[in-house]
Design a protein around this nucleic acid. Structure first.
Lengths: 344, 344
DNA sequence: CGATTCCATGGAATCGATTCCATGAGCGTA
DNA sequence: TACGCTCATGGAATCGATTCCATGGAATCG
């Protein structure tokens, strides 16, 4: 094959491979002539250094790994985008892994990233404890949790404080006259699922609204479970007049099911979603959301990771969340008819 | 550091590094005892082979690169997902690069992928000619174009034949009584932009509808240009009664602007989008779309790439497109009022 | 039973860059 | 003039795995 190595460059430039290497890595101990001639040779031969060989010796790869739960989730797609851009600005290439909401694929990707000797890893961890995440720690591979954490593993993280946003949402709905608020929770094996759930129950208790356990439906952060949740909640004899969904995908499922049931969102029933997605405001009616900044999250995660790589021990960062009121929750509460009496 | 190498494994297992390597790579020339003892040592030391060292010698990295225009575009997020899953099934890890709709970032990622000696690359190329894409060919790196191609570069590709879908859409709108159809085109520097545009003009000519050039607005495949397009088209003295958008993001921008102008989609004006996005059917009214299978596209792209890696010369594949009629284009045509007379 | 093949194995070269170490030229100062 | 210092440079070791090649013992065949 036409593999051009640094020896070829050195030969053409009339210097040793050592000098060529120094020029390429910007080592100051090089003469202007050498720099010039090596640069010319590199251009002429279209030399591309072999990253494998380079990092084998220097133990740096200038790459970081990012492991998300699902790229198709707009939240994680946005996160991938900001992480990637921030890392690129700092001279790192991002390898994106997709756990596909499965622990086995998460482990497979983590092992692959370890083998590739990435300089650090940002991970939105899947579910509970994981052997391969413990392996990261044992090998002292710089690692940051983003969005989600694992309870008993102490690593720097960037997360959202969902408490404020959820409290605002519950207060807002209470003010509109809702007393029975349904909640579509995320899986309790995931930290965000647990945290948002407990924030919701605290807010309910603080506001003195109905704490009927039947109003809680535990989903899996995927669209289908949002649909199932709406169906279940509206089948109750005493159905909720408002619903909060713990992530955007379950909110999508909820919207789809509400439309199928011919219920008018914002009139027959109020709906608030966690996570703001660009097109949520295009729905009719526009969706009220609890928002948090993906841009900040991604940018700060990279920042923390670079600090860990640099040998520092940064503090975890908690970002705020906030309610944005749109038409889907603006109307006053009145009794929701069960789906059976309307259609079907 | 606690870097465990194959020598440590070999020492613990009481064999040579050569034998340990053979066991690890599944070489049949190994005794059951050796296999057993090496396996035990690997497990005990939690050995993870160094991918750099491995691929430096063997020239295989078991990884492929995927370069898309924008991860935040749901179409490419879905594509990334299917490519990644197909590749994983074949034993390859996918490195995802995000050109961010910019040629310089595309080139930067391509060079990085070349340096990492990926076994092959799937790319949705940015704009016109590119030095780094020519570099791929010169180095004989297995490469496949997906979704988009570059005109004078002859590489296997997986693309969509937009002709059928667009013809169906135009015919459908003509049947509903529309004679002036606006078209929000993609950039003419991108193959899909050109191809869909010419498909549209052909369909218009075949149906005998108005070919007024003022009905064509050239956008950039991003949401903002969809909004601008709608604003421009509806400011015409003889405004279109229906609009076709050449991709999903521009359709999103179009929907946002139509809502801002207080126009009822499906009644005041018909709208059809290229690319089907899951939540397009959740809009009120649900959006009519020209759909093509992302799953097939991703799966086949990986398949072709593996064939090229294997030394074969596969034929390019062209996938079909098809119209799905929903409420946004179901109504009969009647004159669209210019935005100025309604609001603003 | 001797010759030949087969096969598991270890030693050593190799992949392509980086980096340690030694060298020698150039220069300033005593 | 001689000594010490800086600094660019080349030779060679190195990173960690793979793989070529040689070897010796076991199995097979005439």
């Amino acid at each position: 094959m036409s593999t051009v190595t640094i020896k070829d460059v050195a030969a053409l430039a009339g210097v040793s491979p050592a000098t060529a290497s120094r020029v390429l890595s910007g080592n100051p101990a090089t003469s202007p002539q050498a720099r010039e001639r090596v640069a010319a040779a590199v251009k002429q031969l279209e030399f591309q250094p072999n990253a494998q060989a380079r990092s084998l010796r220097s133990t740096r790869t200038d790459s970081i790994g990012l492991l998300v739960s699902d790229v198709r989730n707009p939240f994680f797609a946005d996160l991938a985008h900001t992480v990637e851009q921030s890392a690129l600005a700092a001279g790192y290439v991002t390898l994106l892994g997709n756990a596909n909401e499965r622990t086995d694929q998460q482990d497979r990707y983590l092992n692959s990233l370890i083998s590739r000797r990435v300089d650090g890893i940002i991970v939105a961890p899947q579910g509970g404890d994981s052997a391969s995440i413990r392996a990261l720690i044992k090998r002292r591979i710089p690692t940051i949790f983003v969005d989600r954490v694992i309870a008993d593993i102490d690593l720097p993280s960037v997360t959202t404080n969902s408490d404020t946003g959820i409290r605002q949402a519950v207060a807002h709905l209470a003010e509109r006259g809702h007393t029975r608020i349904g909640y579509i929770a995320g899986p309790q094996s995931i930290s965000t699922g647990r945290e948002r759930y407990s924030a919701f129950t605290r807010a309910i208790a603080a506001t003195g609204l109905s704490a009927d356990p039947a109003l809680i439906y535990v989903g899996d952060f995927q669209a289908a479970s949002g649909s199932a949740a709406v169906h279940a909640l509206l089948s109750l004899t005493d159905a909720p007049t408002a619903i909060i969904a713990a992530d955007s995908l379950m909110a999508v499922g909820a919207v789809a099911m509400l439309q199928r049931l011919d219920l008018r969102i914002g009139e027959d029933i109020a709906l608030v979603a966690f996570d703001d997605i660009e097109w949520f405001s295009l729905l009719t009616p526009a969706l009220s959301v609890i928002t948090h900044s993906v841009e900040d999250m991604g940018r700060i995660a990279v920042q923390l990771l670079l600090q860990v790589i640099d040998g520092q021990h940064p503090q975890s960062v908690v970002l705020p969340s906030e309610l944005i009121i749109r038409a889907s929750s603006a109307g006053a509460a009145h009794a929701t008819l069960p789906p059976s009496s309307r259609k079907n």
